[in-house]
């Protein structure tokens, strides 16, 4: 599994996304630029310029028409994927940490930062998936987090719920239509030590995986917020992804730069870790990054994955045969 190294960013990566077909890869970093790549060979398709601050988040609609990005310049931008033209800009009082299109592409959620007296919020905009269309100026609704701010968020199946992951390690479930809080749970360690750093949905959006600073990742049922699986690691996690085709999860993280006192690479545990989704066992690691892994995305067809690191590199991996052949005895028995 020889990775393709994508060198285009000058600063640490913040998020990577595949499009629905998996042929394209979008990456954001703290260097103000969004890059688009061909996932098969790592060739750069183009860049999107316009943001005035570090980019925190990116998503692409299911038809690969529109790109949404959120940045430290307190804006969300919608882009024409093909031309790279900026189509719409929404302004906020604080940075935008996470954006995500709903399953059908008609809604966009965004998580904004709490800072300088502004509380953290989650806003939902209606989206017309057409480069010619005029997007609405005002959100459908806004959720304001009075206690602990949300750090990440995602849509459930059929836009039924919005799931938010919080700075204090809790996970909340909101009504996807009204934005009303339905329930919340303390999924991870309480306090900033349990901060949730990533939430990624399963392909059918009936369950999701969380990553947390408390060194664990969890699989949670989207309907009842029941924790189904827990993956224990020895390093704070920044990202967690589910693999279609195989019942694995891929976790990434590493000691933050300021906590790593030596330059030794082995110190920070900068490896992508593979765990068995059902048995919760670690089954393998992939080395390569020189800094913590900030984001991992899996190819929608489960044929590979990409990781983005604090070191400014994106590494694209295509799985080879042994990966697909790997099974537990019980899986073969019950196949």
């Amino acid at each position: 599994m020889r990775p393709i190294l994508l060198q285009g960013h000058e600063r640490s990566l913040t998020q990577i996304k595949y499009n629905k077909d998996g042929d394209l890869l979008f990456s954001t970093a703290k260097d103000h630029v969004i890059c688009a790549w061909y996932s098969v060979n790592g060739e750069r398709l183009g860049t999107y310029h316009g943001h005035q601050g570090a980019l925190w988040t990116v998503d692409i609609d299911p038809t690969s028409t529109l790109l949404a990005t959120g940045a430290a310049d307190n804006t969300i931008k919608i882009w024409d994927v093909k031309t790279g033209k900026s189509l719409k800009t929404w302004d906020f009082p604080t940075a935008v940490k996470r954006v995500e299109f709903s399953e059908d592409g008609t809604l966009l959620l965004a998580v904004t930062e709490a800072r300088m007296g502004f509380l953290g919020t989650l806003v939902v905009f209606p989206i017309i998936v057409d480069v010619e269309a005029q997007q609405a100026d005002a959100p459908l609704f806004t959720i304001t987090f009075r206690e602990s701010k949300a750090t990440v968020a995602a849509w459930s199946y059929l836009n039924k719920y919005i799931i938010t992951g919080h700075e204090d390690g809790s996970v909340s479930q909101y009504d996807g239509k009204s934005g009303e809080l339905i329930q919340d749970i303390q999924a991870h360690e309480i306090g900033t030590a349990g901060q949730i750093t990533d939430i990624q949905m399963a392909p059918d959006r009936t369950y999701f995986v969380t990553a947390s600073k408390d060194k664990t990742a969890k699989i949670i049922d989207v309907d009842n917020l029941k924790v189904l699986k827990t993956f224990v690691t020895d390093t704070p996690l920044n990202t967690a992804a589910l693999t279609p085709k195989k019942d694995f999860v891929i976790l990434g993280g590493g000691q933050e730069a300021r906590d790593v006192t030596t330059t030794s690479q082995r110190q920070g545990k900068f490896e992508a870790r593979f765990y068995h989704k059902i048995f919760e066992d670690e089954i393998g690691r992939v080395r390569g990054h020189f800094g913590p892994l900030n984001t991992i995305a899996v190819h929608p067809q489960g044929t590979g994955y990409a990781s983005g690191g604090e070191d400014g590199y994106v590494r694209v991996h295509h799985f080879d045969k042994p990966y697909f052949d790997f099974t537990y005895e019980v899986e073969r028995m019950k196949a």
Binding site: D221, D247, I278, F279, K334
Partner: peptide, 20 residues
């Protein structure tokens, strides 16, 4: 234990997919 975990997971998936 693995058998049990696998069975539980698969049963849960079946139910969820049906509900969906």
């Amino acid at each position: 234990a693995r058998k049990r975990q696998l069975d539980e997971w698969r049963a849960w998936r079946e139910r969820v997919e049906k509900d969906l």
